[in-house]
Design a protein around this nucleic acid. Sequence first.
DNA 1: ACGGCTTGGTTCAAGTTTGAAACAAACCTA
DNA 2: TAGGTTTGTTTCAAACTTGAACCAAGCCGT
Lengths: 171, 171
Amino acid sequence: MTTRWLTPEEQRAWRAYIAASLLLEDAIDRQLQQDAGMPHLYYSILSVLSESPERRLRMTDLAERLKITRSRLTYAVTRLEKDGMVRREACRYDKRGSIATLTDDGFAVLERAAPGHVDTVRSFLFDRLSEEQVGQLEEISMAIAQGLQEDGTRPASDDVPWRRRSSTACS
Amino acid sequence: MTTRWLTPEEQRAWRAYIAASLLLEDAIDRQLQQDAGMPHLYYSILSVLSESPERRLRMTDLAERLKITRSRLTYAVTRLEKDGMVRREACRYDKRGSIATLTDDGFAVLERAAPGHVDTVRSFLFDRLSEEQVGQLEEISMAIAQGLQEDGTRPASDDVPWRRRSSTACS
DNA sequence: ACGGCTTGGTTCAAGTTTGAAACAAACCTA
DNA sequence: TAGGTTTGTTTCAAACTTGAACCAAGCCGT
């Protein structure tokens, strides 16, 4: 079948989206680099850890939540560990496992950086959108993400309910 | 003043957005890497050039349109030039300038890759959105981009109408 | 208990991005 | 028109990302 090219509306949306996402990520990266000495992803790692039970998470779970590869996460955590914001611990129940724990230092950095980060997100994103648009953005994003996660989520099909594939509770 | 944290709705939207944009870019990068041997940005460079008059554009203009730094563009174009998809030419009217031109080979690669790319964008993005949502996405993206470009665009304030700051027409 | 498959994580090399510094040409302005 | 600033582009080192390859450790069937 012959290609269905994008309609003019779709083209406009696509280009606007590309531009916006690039600019936004750049702005956020710059702000965090300035104020916290780390890029957005690294901040997100600290953030996710801080909200996890005991501030710890297995590498794979962390990667899954952040939607990044394990390899990328390994690199990032190695850096964060060097900087003392995260500690790696062995998983008792699964000797293959490695658990990343947010240190007090890491938590402190996070707390110090959070206000500035939120301000940035606010001023570049939410302050420019109506309440309605915020809802629309969520729905659109969910729709996109859903289509891209079939694989990642489907394997979890709970036909084996007794077996957590994501061992957050480990150790 | 004390920080205005994100509301639950905003948090949800923000997280969904981050996830979606990461996943989408990854998917598109992978597809293009597979089928065209280059990441999304590089494809975009060829694409923008292909639509420019004479298939050529000054580096700065190209960077501006793509919303990337000049340094990043320099690197990318160097690679594309090595691969023979782009040629660099000197600008006659401004000896500092450098003009990137899409070669026939580059155009051919673009033509060959375009259908697969469009299919990908379609299946991961537009097929999952209603017509309404496409419009919403455009508006939201425009709103975001606008806030982040004040600097880049404002200097262009046409109080000096006789002087094009973007010399697309050069050479 | 052995071999084979899968899973969790890391490693390594190659490629890309970043941001500051370096240059050179163009543009003032006194 | 000399000197100072701005603009267009590249360069360089350091940081980051990618994907394939690797190594253990768990899992499973026989």
